[in-house]
Design a protein around this nucleic acid. Structure first.
Lengths: 213, 213
DNA sequence: CATGCTTGGATAGTGCCGTTGTCCGAGGAA
DNA sequence: TTCCTCGGACAACGGCACTATCCAAGCATG
């Protein structure tokens, strides 16, 4: 498949594909001769994943490159590759350690993890970017004056745990072993918009039920 | 409170506050004399909300203005104001109607809503931006070759319904009547990062439990 | 009253980022 | 041979959140 065909099949302009090649999001095609390169199905798959990450997942190009770097890192085992790829996914704003709201948020998040018995997450808490972004998000709530403590958070956390459990079930049943890392990344990136949309739909529905249209 | 004090208390630079004033995210202060304007606690609250929307919620300035416009629309009842404010919140990418994956996604979403009995949402489905963004997100999954139908979606939707139900309970107990619309918007914007972070934390925890670190 | 600092408003500019246009020399096809 | 198209390199564009600069008008200190 030539670049122009790749463009046609994916719906991505040749200029943009060239840009992704330049940025290292897409491996170069096999060079057939001086002026022609050959791309295969793998390139198409990867290109679709890249588009999904950038367009649907709103992930910055630089971050996408990093995530894909982990996905492709043959030196790592599957679990580690997945972990490090997810690790690299974009997080929310970083917490401002000067802020007292951040300290309060951190305290509540720690209490939450203790009460949930998420020991593994707790051990990693100092290093995990996800943990930090949770602190930042909770701090934002607190700063605006909304009471928000571990007791309020716990049911949410348990619900999201059920969601995460389903995510992994889905991966186990629907992804072949070889593709599992790529699939997991795609899922992490693509499930979130679905979840968010479902969340808002549910809000609309429940709000309409309670208060009318 | 003068502009400089507002800046100091909120941690937002005067230049940025001026920018928000210009963009209509913040009402002008009461003009004391030719060179001094007076801001009150309401301005500070609003400024914090704006920052939260933009920094934590990653909402574009233009969208934030639109959302706040609905919040402040005195001509609407509270429920409608809330609805239209949430309505204006940024959505994911718009579905490309040419794409067969979008048609499949729309079919599955419709089946999902039917099976859930979300009749109100179903009636609004053609107009709701949230519905469209759900279709787009599901279409992205399908396009990448991940099977994803109403049966798979239903448990997710039910979990998110429980989440939404909690959201509204929270609003009823924690927001004074006058602030409810503003609170609901803040919640819609600020709960989502919390949820997302909890989701990822839960994924980390469950993944570590199943497959080790 | 004078002088120097600060205020709020207007405007242009900055930096980043995803994307696109332009130009080129080299092939491949009629 | 001639013309079209290819892939590659590079510069430019457009949008967006934010910031620096300038200005005239106070206010506070001597």
């Amino acid at each position: 498949m030539r670049l122009a065909e790749l463009s046609e099949q994916s719906g991505v302009s040749t200029a943009t594909i060239k840009y992704y090649l330049r940025e290292g999001l897409l491996a170069p095609g096999r060079q057939v001769n001086m002026t022609t390169a050959d791309y295969d199905e793998g390139h198409l798959r990867r290109l679709r994943l890249v588009r999904a990450m950038i367009q649907v997942g709103r992930i910055p190009v630089a971050t996408a490159r990093e995530v894909l770097g982990h996905v492709d890192d043959e030196s790592l085992g599957r679990t580690l590759r997945l972990g490090s790829a997810l690790w690299a996914l974009p997080q929310g704003a970083e917490p401002d350690e000067e802020d007292p709201a951040v300290a309060a948020a951190r305290r509540e998040v720690d209490r939450l993890l203790a009460s949930l018995g998420w020991e593994i997450t707790r051990e990693l808490s100092t290093r995990s970017p996800v943990h930090r972004s949770l602190v930042a998000a909770v701090a934002a709530l607190i700063r605006l004056g909304y009471p928000w403590d571990a007791e309020l958070m716990a049911p949410y956390a348990e619900l999201m745990y059920q969601v995460a459990s389903r995510d992994l079930d889905y991966l186990e049943t629907h992804a072949s072993d070889a593709e599992r890392v790529e699939t997991a990344v795609a899922a992490a990136v693509l499930f979130e918009p679905v979840l968010r949309a479902l969340h808002r739909l549910a809000q609309e529905e429940e709000s309409a039920r309670r208060y009318g249209l």
